[in-house]
Nucleic acid binder design. Structure first.
Lengths: 228, 228
DNA sequence: CGGCGCCTCCCCCGTAGGAGGGATCAGCGG
DNA sequence: CCGCTGATCCCTCCTACGGGGGAGGCGCCG
C-alpha cells in the first residue's frame, strides 16, 4: 500500500531513551530504502506523530512514560481503528504479558532489543510489506499457546452431522440460553415442536439435558466465547 | 540439550522429491556446524529415521506419499510424545489448514520453500536451539488468529468477585454439567445446601437459571473449551 | 405411488430445578 | 460481646424440562 515502488519506507521511532532512539535512527537511516521521519519519547507523542505523518512502520518501545507502547499501539492499530498504522514492538524483556497484550493491541511484530542490526532492518521491511514477524522465543510461546487449545470448528461436526438443519438451529438457540418458549417465539413455531426438537437433539447426541447440550456447543466450537 | 557445545546440529531431511532433498542437503552440509544424518522420502521413513537417529531437527515436507508430514510430525512431536524431536515444516503453498495443523502437530517452525538459503540455515539453527520461527505471512495470520479471540481469564472476575469461594466451587461444577445432587455428592454436602448456593450464585450474577451460569462460565473464561 | 425423513403439533406425567421462606452454627472483626 | 458473613440444612410451591407416546402434512426418491 505504501512504502514500496521505489519509495522509501517511512519510519517513526518511539522510545523514551534518547540513546536508543539515536541508535535505531542511525541503523535505519543508513539503509537506502528506509527513512526515519520522526522520533517520539513517549506513547502520546508516538500516536501524535504517527497520525500526522502516516508512516509505514512505527518502532514502538513497550515501556514509556505518560502512555506506554501498548496503549499507543492500541490507538494506532487496535481493533476498531479505521486506518491502522503498522507497529513493530520492541522490548528489553520478553515478558509474556507484554507479548500477548501487544499482539492483541494490533502489533505486527514483537522483537527483543538484543537483536542484530540486520535483523532490525529486515524486520522493518517485513512489517512494512504487510507481513509480520516475532522474536524466536516469542514465536515459540505463541505456537505453544496456539497449539494448547484444541481446534475449534473442525471437530464440531462430530456427532452434529446427525442433526437436521432445524435441529442445529434449535441447538444454537439452546446454547445461547434461550428457553423452549423463547426458541418457539424466535422460530415462530409451537413450543411443543421445540420440545420435540430438543428431545431429538438430546437423543442423537446422547446428552442428559440441555445443559450438556450447551456445554457441547462450546466444547466443539459450535459456539465460540465472545460471539455473543 | 543437543546439537550445541561445539557439536554439530544433526538434521534429517524428509521430502518426496529427490531433487529437493539434494538441494537442502547441499545447502546444509555446506555449513560447518550442520550435518545431514539421513534423508527420507515419505513420512514413515522420516519417523523411522528420526526415532533411530534422534536428530536435532527434522526438515519435513508437508505433502508426501504414504504418510504426510503432518502425521509424521504428530508422531515425532505431537502431544503425548515422550521425547519429541523438533520438526521444521516446509511447504510450497502456505495454506491455512496446513499451518494450523502443523503447529498443532507440534512443529517448531513453518516455512515456505521459496526462502533464501541463509534463512533456511538460520531457521535450522533457531529450531535446534529450542526456539521457533515462522514465515512472515504465517506469522501474520497466526497473530491475527490469536488476536481475534478475546483475552480469556482476565475479564473473568467481572461479577465473579462477588461470589464466595464455595460458590465459585459450585459454579465450576455447575459449568461442568453436574446436577445439584451430583454437586452435593462431589462436595460431600446436602443437596439442599447446593440449591442454596446455586440460588445465591444466580442472584449475585443476575442470572435466570443454571444454564445461563454455564454460558457465563464459558464466556468469561472461567471455563475454557478443551479443559474438560 | 408408497415409503421415508423432516417438520409440525398435541397429551400425559414425573422430576429436577429454582423462588421464597426460615433455621443453626462457626469464625471474624469491631 | 455483638453483629455480620458464610456454610450448612430444612420446608413448600411452581414451572420448565424431558420421556413416551401419537399424529398429520409435505417433499423426495426409488
Amino acid at each position: 500500500m505504501t512504502g514500496r515502488d521505489g519509495m522509501s519506507i517511512r519510519v517513526v521511532v518511539a522510545d523514551d531513551q534518547e540513546l536508543v532512539r539515536a541508535g535505531f535512527q542511525m541503523i535505519l537511516s543508513a539503509q537506502p530504502d528506509i527513512e526515519v521521519v520522526a522520533e517520539a519519547a513517549d506513547g502520546a507523542q508516538a500516536v501524535d506523530a504517527a497520525r500526522r505523518l502516516r508512516p509505514d512502520v512505527v518502532l514502538m518501545d513497550v515501556r514509556m512514560p505518560r502512555m506506554d507502547g501498548l496503549e499507543a499501539t492500541r490507538r494506532l492499530a487496535g481493533p476498531g481503528v479505521t486506518s491502522p498504522v503498522k507497529v513493530l514492538m520492541l522490548t528489553t524483556f520478553d515478558l509474556d504479558d507484554y507479548v500477548y497484550e501487544a499482539l492483541r493491541a494490533g502489533a505486527s511484530g514483537f522483537l527483543l532489543k538484543d537483536l542484530r542490526r540486520d535483523d532490525l532492518v529486515n524486520a522493518v521491511r517485513v512489517v512494512a510489506s504487510g507481513e509480520a514477524l516475532l522474536a524466536p522465543s516469542v514465536t515459540r510461546r505463541l505456537i505453544g499457546e496456539f497449539a494448547r487449545r484444541p481446534r475449534p470448528a473442525q471437530t464440531a461436526p462430530a456427532g452434529l452431522a446427525a442433526l437436521t438443519a432445524r435441529e442445529r438451529e434449535v441447538l444454537h438457540l439452546m446454547a445461547r440460553g434461550r428457553s423452549n418458549a423463547e426458541i418457539a417465539a424466535d422460530l415462530v413455531i409451537g413450543e411443543q415442536t421445540v420440545k420435540t426438537h430438543v428431545s431429538n437433539i438430546l437423543a442423537k447426541l446422547y446428552l442428559r439435558d440441555r445443559i450438556h447440550a450447551v456445554i457441547l456447543a462450546y466444547e466443539t466450537g459450535l459456539i465460540e466465547p465472545g460471539t455473543r
